[in-house]
């Protein structure tokens, strides 16, 4: 097991390097270099530009040097000094801006994942044990609808309905009085009261897929000879189901995390923009619109790394649950 975990963690290294290269390309994509833009912006506001500061920035980011030198300066800054670069819009180091938001994003993603498990398991179970009944058709249809509606549409409709019929806004993660308050039980309660709306919306797409997988998996198991044998022995139906088939059918819950997590993070980015949540999504959009590339790049980089770490954890959990994986 330990060997498996080590091997799996070693495999993460090239992935993270690849992510960092892609991120660096995105940072470099906008035409012109940011320093020129910055100087022009400052000059247009009538501020004098300190020549020493420009030279210092040029040195710090390796501007004017070959691209791989710039890449190395950037990536080594992140890993050796925790320096993510400077956000030019906020005029602060990126590292001061993103951790809170990454935390909220991660909390939202994990809640969404748990929520979709909570919903998908009973429904998938019901659909499989009641195959081709009206209930099964109903949930299958609901699942298709869930897959087809863009998440931001759901959020918009929800905003509209709550505004029109309940006269309140559902945006944000906190009520106004708690936004800047210190952490307390009341604040956590307030967070939970707001959290379920984005969680439910983001979960819709992934849940639909998970229901279909659970149903298919459980159906496969239910037709296996050992189930027939158990039934022939006179085992009660509920005991029969929970003893083996359900356990096997639970495996996809862990194994699908790898593709569900990126999907959740993606959905979260859009929903957060519509519902104005204090997560990475809105900050990323703002950063991209104002070409604040170090901020945008850091966000993309860390969101991706978080996803990869999530996948790693799910892979380890899967290896723990399913011995076939760690020995192959």
């Amino acid at each position: 097991m330990l060997q498996y975990i080590l091997r799996r963690m070693l495999m993460m290294i090239p992935t993270i390097i690849a992510i960092s290269i892609v991120t660096f390309i995105i940072i470099q994509l906008p035409p012109g270099d940011f320093l020129t833009t910055l100087v022009a912006g400052l000059a247009s506001q009538g501020e004098t530009v300190n020549q020493d500061a420009i030279v210092a920035l040029q040195e710090r980011y390796g501007l004017g040097q070959p691209i791989y030198v710039q890449y190395w300066k950037w990536i080594s800054g992140i890993f050796l000094r925790g320096d993510l670069g400077q956000s030019f819009e906020y005029n602060r180091p990126v590292s001061q801006l993103i951790w809170d938001r990454l935390g909220f994003s991660a909390a939202l993603a994990i809640s969404t994942l748990l929520f979709s498990w909570l919903i998908a398991f009973p429904i998938g179970f019901y659909s499989a044990t009641h195959q081709y009944t009206p209930g099964d058709y109903f949930f299958t249809f609901l699942g298709f609808i869930g897959l087809a509606i863009p998440e931001f549409m759901l959020a918009l409709v929800l905003l509209y309905v709550s505004f029109k019929y309940f006269g309140q806004s559902v945006g944000g993660l906190f009520s106004p009085e708690y936004v800047d308050a210190a952490w307390s039980f009341a604040r956590v309660g307030d967070l939970l009261a707001h959290l379920w709306i984005p969680v439910a919306i983001i979960a819709v797409g992934g849940t639909a897929g998970l229901i279909r997988i659970t149903r298919a998996n459980l159906l496969d198991e239910l037709n296996k000879p050992y189930v027939v044998t158990a039934r022939a022995k006179g085992l009660s139906e509920s005991r029969l189901l929970t003893k083996y088939p359900v356990r096997v059918a639970l495996i996809p819950f862990v194994s699908t995390v790898g593709w569900e997590l990126p999907q959740i993070i993606s959905g979260e980015a859009i929903i957060a923009i519509v519902l104005n949540l204090p997560t990475t999504g809105p900050l990323l959009l703002r950063a991209l619109q104002s070409e604040d590339m170090y901020l945008a790049g850091s966000l993309i980089f860390f969101v991706s790394v978080l996803t990869v770490i999530g996948t790693l954890i799910s892979d380890i959990a899967l290896a723990y649950l399913d011995p076939r994986i760690r020995y192959s």
Binding site: T15, I26, I265
Partner: peptide, 23 residues
Amino acid sequence: RGIEFLISIPRIPLFLGLAAALP
């Protein structure tokens, strides 16, 4: 490995990053 890499990173942030670069 390349495919696994592309699947493992969230799409929308990546799309956004690339699309923002269109002049």
